[in-house]
Design a protein around this nucleic acid. Sequence first.
DNA 1: GGATTCATGTAAGAGGTTACATGATTAT
DNA 2: ATAATCATGTAACCTCTTACATGAATCC
Lengths: 175, 175
Amino acid sequence: MKTRPATEYALLGALRSGSKHGYEILQFFEACLGSTWYVSTSQLYALLKRLEGRGWLRSFVEVQETRPSRRVFSLTSKGKKAFDQWLFSPTEHVRDLRVEFLAKLFFIKDLGMEGGQELVQSQIGVLGTLKESLAQRRRQTREEFHALMLDARIANIASWITWMKTKAEAFMSDA
Amino acid sequence: MKTRPATEYALLGALRSGSKHGYEILQFFEACLGSTWYVSTSQLYALLKRLEGRGWLRSFVEVQETRPSRRVFSLTSKGKKAFDQWLFSPTEHVRDLRVEFLAKLFFIKDLGMEGGQELVQSQIGVLGTLKESLAQRRRQTREEFHALMLDARIANIASWITWMKTKAEAFMSDA
DNA sequence: GGATTCATGTAAGAGGTTACATGATTAT
DNA sequence: ATAATCATGTAACCTCTTACATGAATCC
């Protein structure tokens, strides 16, 4: 199965707490995830269209008197399901931790959902397994450059595991 | 100024030690950087064309008797200059360390060039400065999620700095 | 006889970016 | 007056990916 781009799920997340129009989603992003995740306006509107076409969103036009009319989006049950499934899955790749995994933590907390601790635990599990398999390759390699690369990846994963155990757990545990 | 994609420089690097044809570059990549850096054949040929158009490469067709003819590429002086300039510059972004910076170390060693120690030192400098500025932002923020994100980035940079000082320096110092 | 190696490419598409276009309203 | 806010989009482009196309030679 091919995974969908994470930005799609972030949009679903913005709508998880209630319907919003495009511009409002943009503001939500900037305010809440702005330091981590940037979405350009053109991409936003393109993604909203795509997600509606897939049946994860529905929308209607809201006409306003003094302001330009706007299209209000809300999650369908399919969209809600897709989002929740994404939300509680650990990321496969280390490179996705910084943006995608952090956003998951944000959404879980923001929406007041249960299961944050479990997500952190299962992400730790994934990282631990990966680290072990890299460590094994590391022990077997005689090639200097390959070893250098593996050392970097292993150290990087170790630092993420430490962060998970010290910071992410604390973030998810306090009200 | 806008930076060129790193893959371009990797191709220049493959030619730095002498001219090669496309297929040969591909093999070089797979053998030497295969664990870190993957380049697809279609991208390779597209990039070679682009680099020649820019005047960083030149090429001629070598006709063979029993094998299909092939196009042999070599660096121009402009290309050599561009490569060397890239080679000894630290990467700006942390995300480029794993692929791009590692490749620089590989090339410096592979080509037997001087200045590897200095590159590692200046990369450490860049990371140290970045870490300091993030640490300062960290001290000022009251926002929990923002703090969580900064903690992750800071820890990540710290792990890279440690790796630089323990592994990368050692890699560059031994013959 | 069938897979792998040698050797080069094209075409389509995914996912993203920047720049551009529009036009009213409200705040300074 | 002019800048920012509200609100939506299109068009062009960039990088890279996957799939497809070709065709002889050599290894098993």
